[in-house]
């Protein structure tokens, strides 16, 4: 499988580090990180990643707003977005499904299976 480029948008640097290491170890994917929604949109426009892992609760513009902006942007709207969130309520899950994200992975996630979870959602093979 060709190496994938994954964009992580999360304001928490420790999460970025764990995800980065996990995906590198398990799938050897390339990782770029953004610490805010606006930075993430900018990176997405320029690097056209294969998938975006997007945190929901972030300052300035949150994950939902970021997703909507990415979705409206012709350069980024084709990029699959997987929400990486601590919000686990049923109502929240329904909201995420409604806005059309590709998938939702709940924090805390298992770093050993994170890559396979992403691959399964995106129908990639590892």
């Amino acid at each position: 499988m060709n190496s994938k480029l994954i964009l992580i948008i999360d304001d928490e640097e420790p999460i970025q580090k764990v995800v980065r290491l996990s995906l590198k170890l398990e799938a050897n994917w390339q990782i770029i990180c953004a610490s805010s929604g606006l930075e993430g949109i900018d990176l997405a426009e320029h690097h056209h990643p294969d998938a975006i892992l997007l945190d929901v609760m972030m300052p300035e513009i949150d994950g939902i707003n970021t997703f909507e902006r990415l979705n409206k942007n012709v350069d980024t709207q084709h990029i699959p977005v997987i929400l990486l969130t601590a919000k686990t309520g049923t109502a929240e899950k329904r909201l995420f499904q409604k806005i059309g994200v590709t998938g939702v992975i709940t924090k805390p996630f298992d770093p050993l299976t994170l890559a396979s979870q992403i691959a399964k959602l995106l129908q990639w093979t590892l």
């Binding site: 764990v18 609760m57 924090k107």
Partner: peptide, 22 residues
């Protein structure tokens, strides 16, 4: 919910990765 889970996620992930021995 967010503030507890976020450090837990980092902690949990880091421990799992260390445990692999890699």
């Amino acid at each position: 919910s967010h503030e507890l889970r976020t450090p837990l996620t980092s902690l949990h992930g880091s421990l799992k990765l260390i445990a692999t021995g890699r």
